[in-house]
Design a protein around this nucleic acid. Structure first.
Lengths: 195, 195
DNA sequence: CGTGTTGACTTAGATTTTCTAAGCCATGAA
DNA sequence: TTCATGGCTTAGAAAATCTAAGTCAACACG
C-alpha cells in the first residue's frame, strides 16, 4: 500500500491560491511572498503534467482540471486539520493568554496597542511578564519578548515589531510546542508584524 | 477559512511509519534513510506537542493518540492520492514502456536482467533506444540512459546502477513530468537501484 | 493620454529544511 | 559470545524553498 502524493507543500500552495483565486492573497494566508507561491504552484503543475490555473494579467482562473481538483484537496486538508485538532487540541475558544515583557508593553507599539484595545480575532488576555516558567506551567499560551533566547523545548518565532517611526524592533514570540503554528498563534503573529 | 496543518512531510513520515510500525520499512517506502524518518516523526511530535509512538528497542508501538490519528490521516492521504490520479492519470494498468540505451542494455546488469525476465511489478515492456523524442511523443514512458543530460521539460532521476562486480554505474532515468513520482516509476527506481 | 497601482512572472542568491553518513546502544538469535 | 537488527543522535552536505528585485500587461483616474 502506497499513495501517489504530489509534493505536499506545493499542494498546499495550490489549495490556498485556488480558494482565493490569487497568489497574492494565498501568500498572505501562508505567510510567504507571492513569488514563493507562484513557484510552488508551477512546480506542482510540472510534477502533475497538468495545467491547474489560467494566469491572467491581473488574477487567476482555474482550469477545468484545477476546478475538479480543488474541492477534493480542500476536503482532504480539512480532514487533516480536524484530525490534528482532535489529537492535539488547542484553545477550544478560550482567550489566548499573551505575556508581554515590560520593555515591549511599556512603550507604545501600534500592534500591541491594537491588541490591548481588543476587537480583533483571536481574543486575547494580555499580561505584562517575561516569565518563561508561566508558559511551561500552562498559565500562559505565548510570550512576547525582546530577548532572542529560544529556550530548548519551546517554539520561538522571531518577528519584527513595527514601531511608530516606521522602523521595526526585533522580538521573539515563544510558544508551547503544542500551540505553535495553530490558527490563533498564526493570526497573532500577523497582527503583531502588521504596521 | 484556514486550516491547522502540521508540517505535511512530517505527517507523511508518520503515516508510513505507523502503517509499517517501523521507521526502517517506512524509509524504504519513502526512499530515504531511517534516520530521516526518525527526525521527521520527532519534529511532528514536537510540533503537535503529542507523543505518537512508543519507541521500543526493536520496533515501534502507537500510543493511543497515534492510534486514533493514523486512520484519519491515512484516509486523507488516500483522498489526495485518488484525486491526483483522477486529474493526472498515469498508466491505468498498461505496461510501463521503458527505453534503455544500448550501452546499458548490452552489458549484463543484474537489475536490468531482472526486468527483462519480468515477473516483478510494475510489468514492463523494454526497448533498446536512447531516443528522447519517443518519450516526448508518448511512445515511451521512461528512458534509462548513461548520459546525465536532463533535457528541459522532462523529469530526470540520477541513479546508481549496480554492476555484477558490486560497484555501481551512474545512470539517469528520464520521465515525462506527468509520470514522474508515480508509484510505477518509483517502484522501477527501486528495482533498478537494488543490487 | 500619462501616471500609479495591482498582480501576475522570472531569476539569483540566501536561508531553511531535510537527508545522509557514521557511530551508539539495547535486544534477541545463532 | 558474537552478530544482526532497528531504534537513536549528530555534524555536515545537499536540496528545497523563500526573498528581493526587477519586468510586464491591464486597468483606473485625473
Amino acid at each position: 500500500m502506497s499513495y501517489r502524493l504530489p509534493p505536499l507543500n506545493s499542494l498546499r500552495a495550490f489549495e490556498a491560491s485556488a480558494r482565493h483565486l490569487s497568489f497574492k492573497r494565498a501568500s498572505d494566508e501562508l505567510c510567504v511572498t507571492p513569488g514563493a507561491v507562484s513557484q510552488q504552484v508551477k512546480s506542482l503543475e510540472a510534477s502533475l503534467g497538468v495545467q491547474l490555473f489560467r494566469r491572467l494579467p491581473r488574477g487567476l482562473l482555474l482550469t477545468a482540471k484545477g476546478e475538479s481538483y480543488l474541492p477534493l484537496i480542500s476536503n482532504a486538508f480539512r480532514a487533516i486539520s480536524d484530525a490534528t485538532e482532535h489529537v492535539a487540541p488547542t484553545l477550544k475558544g478560550r482567550l489566548l493568554r499573551v505575556g508581554i515583557s515590560r520593555p515591549l508593553s511599556g512603550r507604545r507599539h501600534p500592534a500591541i496597542e491594537r491588541l490591548r484595545r481588543g476587537g480583533d480575532w483571536p481574543r486575547t488576555k494580555l499580561t505584562t511578564t517575561d516569565d518563561l516558567s508561566k508558559l511551561i506551567d500552562g498559565k500562559l499560551d505565548v510570550l512576547l519578548r525582546t530577548s532572542p533566547q529560544s529556550p530548548p523545548g519551546l517554539h520561538a518565532d522571531r518577528i519584527a515589531l513595527p514601531v511608530p517611526s516606521g522602523a521595526a524592533l526585533p522580538a521573539t514570540l515563544v510558544t508551547l510546542p503544542g500551540l505553535a503554528g495553530c490558527r490563533e498563534v498564526r493570526a497573532l503573529l500577523r497582527l503583531l508584524t502588521r504596521a
